[in-house]
């Protein structure tokens, strides 16, 4: 299988704290790769580097054969890199549907003047975007909440809207930062199913998750970070029995649920 993403010698230092250190990583297309590791291991920082939130201190990120150096985050979205945030970040004052429609921003072209003068093309585009957004909401099982304010949903539902918002434009790669955190066992199973359906849409998934059972049931490959360094990499089974992993992560006084 092809590598959709290649990371070479990636390093990010925040002042004295080195969050990611000399990381080499290849991500294969159309599979689920889980990034796990204890708190502060650098998982979210890795996502932020790939998404272009801030530049790396050193190293390269190559996406579909193209070096992303210097490319701002909103342009990386256009390249097909989508993400969710650990702290959700929905647009709380907008409806659930509108949140997903913002996800389709780059699928539309109409600007201020089109809207001001009601160009017919803009209206057609708007209808298409609305339909795609509704379909995506149905995919995550929230079609009936479309008109609710996003801020009024439960935390679990908000996380699903965030996934829908990122999936809607059909990115090539989607990064989910703790999609199941704060969800109950039933919801976690639903989210795991959802992740599998996303991969079936030919979208490569990178996900961070602390819940081991979720990771083992969802990912084909598990990469373990500790102190910004990769300490293990393999199938869920291999990683689970790795001594260093058990020491660094699973062996933590009762790994977080």
């Amino acid at each position: 299988m092809d590598d959709i993403l290649r990371i070479e010698g990636l390093t990010k230092a925040f002042g004295g704290v080195v969050a990611v250190r000399e990381l080499d990583l290849d991500i294969q297309e159309c599979q689920v790769t889980a990034i796990i590791g204890p708190n502060g291991a650098g998982k979210t920082t890795l996502f932020n580097l790939i998404a272009g939130v801030f530049p790396p201190t050193r190293g390269r990120i190559i996406f579909q054969g193209r070096d992303l150096k210097g490319m701002p985050d909103y342009r990386r979205a256009g390249m097909g890199i989508g993400r969710t945030f650990q702290d959700v970040r929905l647009f709380g004052n907008m409806s659930v549907l509108e949140n997903v429609m913002v996800g389709l921003h780059l699928k539309g072209k109409s600007g201020m003047l089109d809207a001001a003068f009601h160009w017919p093309g803009a209206r057609r585009e708007e209808e298409n975007v609305r339909l795609t957004a509704i379909n995506t909401l149905n995919l995550v099982g929230l079609g009936r909440k479309a008109d609710m304010k996003a801020g009024e949903l439960t935390f679990g539902q908000q996380k699903l809207v965030a996934v829908a918002r990122a999936v809607a434009p059909q990115p090539r790669l989607i990064m989910l930062d703790e999609p199941a955190a704060g969800s109950n066992a039933l919801e976690r199973m639903e989210i795991s199913d959802l992740v599998k359906r996303i991969v079936e849409m030919k979208i490569t998934v990178l996900l961070v998750e602390h819940d081991m059972r979720f990771v083992m049931g969802t990912a084909q490959r598990v990469v373990v970070l500790d102190g910004g360094v990769r300490i293990a990499d393999g199938t869920p089974g291999q990683v689970q029995s790795d001594k260093r992993v058990i020491a660094a992560y699973l062996g933590e006084p009762e790994a977080r649920a």
Partner: peptide, 11 residues
């Protein structure tokens, strides 16, 4: 609502 989220979606 969230500048970082908006940018992550291409805005």
């Amino acid at each position: 609502g969230s500048e970082s989220a908006a940018q992550s979606l291409g805005v």
